[in-house]
Design a protein around this nucleic acid. Structure first.
Lengths: 152, 152
DNA sequence: TCTGAAACCACCATGCA
DNA sequence: TGCATGGTGGTTTCAGA
């Protein structure tokens, strides 16, 4: 865990709001010089607090209108079957996120498809063919809201 | 749905890999001039294919080591209860993502907390106090892998 | 190709242990 | 003194027309 002062927190809040802002723009808001702001941002990156920036794509405009969350319980789960499952899932391009979880299910997958029939294809030919897949729960995404979340 | 050519796809792939790359750097990789690359990126933004850039934070380094996914089924779900629920959830800072879904559950929440006992506080004082909450399913995040996903 | 702005570096000043 | 931080000024690189 890394200790950050209130200035770092303010900078993070600004960047969470809009990650494309320049150091000078943020500096103006916080009454800090551009290099001072820039050095803090750089330090946040070097210490790994900021891991990077991710593109926020509109998959619908790319023709992928369907997003489904799958909860997957493995039928057999020794160490090998986890590795096997993860290797298999890595080969499915429609899988956008793989979350290894503890609870009712073993994995949560975020799957994108062009439409429902395309999703059926992915489910039948890809997901269900993976080694060790037991129970599968599906939820179709209707809408999504991301919020900044706590930072300190 | 927006039609993109193969060059746009290559640019998107580069930006998905690393969204901080400059237009000139991507242009060098694709044998394109800096302005040509820049215009294409700009067009992708203006058409809304690229919605923006999101900071990728390491919440663990910020002292939030626990991430839990909650599946929530509403006990009563007329139009009012959906609105009530969404208003209530918006007031909980620990909730990072709100997904309205169709299937076994009505909502999926991504909740971050400092540790398990902090999560218990959020669950008892915040989540369970929301209006209309029925069944709740919890899964603790162990590890997560994000993949580029299909773009065309 | 061209211009203003941003990133980035070197160097010095200040405040505090 | 030593360390952490901020400021100034200058060069390189980029965004944007």
């Amino acid at each position: 865990m890394i200790e950050l002062d209130s200035t770092d927190h303010l900078i993070l809040r600004e960047l969470i709001e809009d990650a494309t802002q320049s150091a000078s723009k943020i500096g103006r808001k916080l009454n800090l010089s551009q290099p001072a702001t820039w050095r803090r941002i750089k330090r946040l990156q070097e210490t790994g607090v900021i891991k990077g920036q991710r593109l926020d794509l509109d998959r619908e405009k790319l023709g992928f209108g369907v997003t489904v969350f799958l909860g997957i319980k493995l039928a057999t789960k020794g160490r090998v079957s986890l590795d096997d499952f993860e290797r298999a899932v890595a080969a499915i391009p429609e899988v956008q996120t793989v979350e290894h979880i503890l609870g009712v299910y073993d994995y949560r997958l975020r799957v994108v498809a062009r439409d429902i029939s395309d999703f059926e294809r992915v489910l039948r030919r890809r997901i269900m063919m993976m080694p060790g897949v037991g129970d599968v729960e599906a939820n179709v995404l209707l809408s999504e809201e991301r919020r900044p979340g706590p930072i300190g």
